[in-house]
């Protein structure tokens, strides 16, 4: 299938990109890895007159952790994040989420910034980013603002990004060294398929057997946006977690989810799987924390 006609603009500075976005307001789309937008354009679901590529702007392709926090540039590719030794050591859940997206070929092109800007409810990087309390740096001609990733998603395909803004960086705070985190992607064909349910869980045991000082649970693919389930987190904090407590928390997650039926699964099945996968993700995250 041929791409529709468009002008391919390749600015070499961010300033220039802002000017192009302003000049072609409403007719331009940003291009990072292209693995989502090019498919949409081929299907004529999207026909921007201009693509403003970020690939020729220097210093957007980086993964840094100099001051304790992890900083991921807009053009950092998923495979670079997934294979990065420091990310694998200190933010293992994020490396694992990055590797759960698509094929090697896709991950060699696709970016994490693009994955969240595309705002698919099943975006695999989103639940882990939210569980890690990550934020995004949105830059525009007028300056920059920082927004928690949790507030970034507004609906399927909709984000808080405003016209003229570019998501320049994802910032991930240092993870507690005692914490264990796991992203459980439930799909029929592994990374090649979209998630039926995605659950990111981070657990911080406090030394007392069975007790956790912190728990974070974020669901993907079962709501219009990724959803943090604070009530389920509270149900697991600062008490002895046994099967009954975990069952109750998993049920809360199930009740809070509001999935749709589609080709991958019925809404009813998704809801039931939220309960199963929440329990599994918690147990896996806990065992990873204990192994530290």
């Amino acid at each position: 299938m041929r791409l529709p006609k468009f002008e391919h603009l390749q600015p070499t500075r961010l300033d220039e990109a802002f000017d192009l976005l302003e000049r072609h307001k409403g007719e331009a789309k940003l291009l990072a890895g292209g693995t989502d937008i090019i498919v949409r354009m081929k299907h004529r679901m999207m026909t921007p007159k201009y693509l403003v590529s970020l690939s020729r702007i220097p210093d957007l392709d980086y993964i840094r952790s100099d001051d304790g926090a992890l900083k991921i540039g807009a053009m950092a590719r998923l495979n670079d994040i997934g294979d990065h030794p420091v990310v694998n050591k200190d933010w293992a859940i994020l490396a694992q989420a990055a590797r759960s997206i698509g094929s090697v070929q896709s991950r060699n092109r696709a970016t994490m910034a693009g994955n969240i800007c595309n705002a698919s409810p099943s975006a695999d990087s989103a639940p882990s980013l939210i569980a890690l309390n990550s934020q995004v740096v949105l830059v525009s001609k007028g300056g920059e603002r920082i927004l928690p990733v949790e507030e970034f998603f507004k609906g399927p395909g909709e984000t808080a990004i405003k016209a003229g803004e570019i998501l320049k960086e994802i910032q991930v705070p240092k993870m507690n060294p005692k914490s264990g985190g796991y992203y459980l992607k439930y799909s029929m064909r592994g990374a090649m398929d979209l998630a039926i349910v995605g659950v990111a869980c981070i657990v911080t045991p406090n030394g007392k057997a069975g007790y956790c000082e912190d728990v974070r649970i974020v669901l993907g693919a079962v709501c219009p946006t990724p959803l943090r389930i604070r009530e389920a987190e509270e149900a697991l904090k600062n008490k002895a977690v046994d099967e009954a407590v975990l069952e109750k928390a998993a049920r809360i997650a199930m009740d809070e989810s509001c999935p749709i039926s589609d080709v991958r699964s019925s809404a009813e099945y998704r809801k039931k799987m939220v309960k199963v996968m929440t329990r599994r993700a918690f147990n896996k995250a806990l065992s990873l924390a204990k192994a530290k």
């Binding site: 291009l31 090019i38 070929q105």
Partner: peptide
């Protein structure tokens, strides 16, 4: 890479 998803200018 999947060459079908790479716009030629990239």
């Amino acid at each position: 890479v999947n060459s079908c998803l790479v716009p030629i200018m990239e």
